[in-house]
Simulated scan of single mutants.
Amino acid sequence: MSNELKNLRTYLMTGVSYMIPIVVIGGVLIALSIALSGVEAGTGANVTNPILSKMLNIGVKAFGLMVPVLAGFIAFGIAERPGLAPGLVGGALANEIGAGFLGGIIAGFVAGYTAKWIKTWKVPTQLRAIMPIFVIPLLGSLVVGTVMYIIGAPISSLMESMTNGLKSMGTSNAVILAIIMGAMIAFDMGGPVNKVAFMFGAAMIGEGVYTVMGPVAVAICIPPLAMGVATLLSPKKYSEAEKEAGKGAIAMGLIGITEGAIPFAAADPIRVIPSIVTGSAIGAAIAAMGKVGDHAPHGGPIVLPVVDNKVMFMVAVIVGVAVAAFMVNALKKEVQEEIIENDDPGEIDIEF
């Protein structure tokens, strides 16, 4: 059972890893085009410049590929090349029926396991050559398409109910939601938990609710900025490689790329992950209390021109970064203190 759960996570992360560049392309281009065009009260973004309009369109098209790419490469991870086409088809259907991110995950697993099962069929020698390029993609697409049309309505209804529930929330509930979403954003820094929170915030923009993406936009940039700042505040607690990574993390944080904190979390998850989760949750809560809104499906200071209540946005980011940076440095020891010599001079032990 544990091996199977590990495999499921591996397949999911395969899809997420291929989706990340699409998220970056779409998010940054949309944010830049809107930021350079401005936002009008009551109407939101107003991109009229022809060049910026084309930039926005590129970003929107990239965002439209997120769910198909996610589903396609989940299926690819399970069944290799024969699973890719059914996964892409299932992801496109998830977009069409409004099932969104969760629907794409389901489509990827259905397509992948269907293709993997069909690969085990005993077929005549004459059919073997066309199985991976015709039979498996065709049958896999029919199966995943049928499943998506069956489950599409319930998933779409659930998302609609969540939207309506969010619109009716009071201030206190909005803060609690922001804390949860801020923690999710930081927990796996671009992984599936992060993407659920991000996609929910982005979906709310389409519903005219900008005060969900606002806290998410704050939480997105806190992990990389905090780890970069932490290396500057306590350089003795980080290796040379980590200090170099810290510079890159600050740059990534400024344009809303949470993955900039991954090298630090991979090296020291016990101290880093709780710190950035705490910082992002607090930053998101402050943003919710300040009614910060974000009109672009992206995060970090790059979206500041399209943010409602810019002062509170920056206050939330600064407080969140400070909390995470001071917390992780309080938990960490100096690098020299963590290296303990053992009986063999050719080896060292690292104390965690």
Results as ranks from 00 to 15, higher is better:
Phe76Met: 05
Gly201Lys: 08
Pro215Ile: 00
Lys167Ala: 08
Lys236Met: 10
Ser141Tyr: 08
Tyr210Ile: 01
Val229Gly: 00
Ile350Glu: 04
Val303Phe: 12
Leu12Arg: 00
Met131Thr: 03
Glu337Thr: 05
Lys333Leu: 12
Glu80Cys: 01
Ile105Met: 12
Pro274His: 01
Asn57His: 10
Val175Phe: 06
Met289Phe: 15
Met184His: 03
Pro132Leu: 03
Gly293Trp: 15
Arg9Cys: 05
Lys237Gly: 04
Ile133Ser: 12
Ile74Trp: 01
Ile106Pro: 11
Gly77Val: 04
Ala75Ile: 07
Val321Met: 09
Gly320Gln: 01
Val209Met: 04
Pro263Trp: 13
Val143Ser: 09
Ile34Tyr: 15
Asp268Trp: 08
Leu142Phe: 14
Glu80Trp: 01
Pro192Gly: 10
Ile136Phe: 09
Val144His: 06
Phe313Cys: 01
Ala79Lys: 05
Ile176Cys: 02
Val89Pro: 01
Lys122Asp: 11
Ser168Ile: 03
Phe313Gly: 03
Gly214Cys: 04
Met227His: 00
Lys54His: 07
Gly228Met: 02
Thr171Cys: 00
Val24Phe: 12
Gly90Glu: 13
Phe200Trp: 11
Pro301Glu: 13
Gly152Thr: 02
Pro50His: 10
Thr10Lys: 05
Phe326Ser: 11
Gly152Phe: 02
Gly191Tyr: 11
Val292Phe: 15
Ile302Gln: 14
Gly90Gln: 12
Thr43Glu: 14
Gly87Val: 12
Val306Asp: 08
Pro50Leu: 05
Glu242Thr: 08
Ala217Thr: 00
Met314Gln: 06
Ala115Trp: 01
Phe187Ala: 12
Met19Gly: 01
Met312His: 08
Lys61His: 12
Ala266Leu: 15
Met252Asp: 09
Ile339Gln: 07
Val212Trp: 02
Met314Ser: 09
Gly15Cys: 02
Val321Phe: 09
Thr146Lys: 05
Phe198Val: 06
Gly104Ile: 02
Asp343Pro: 00
Glu240Lys: 14
Leu232Gly: 04
Val110Pro: 03
Arg271Cys: 13
Ile74Ser: 03
Leu158Thr: 11
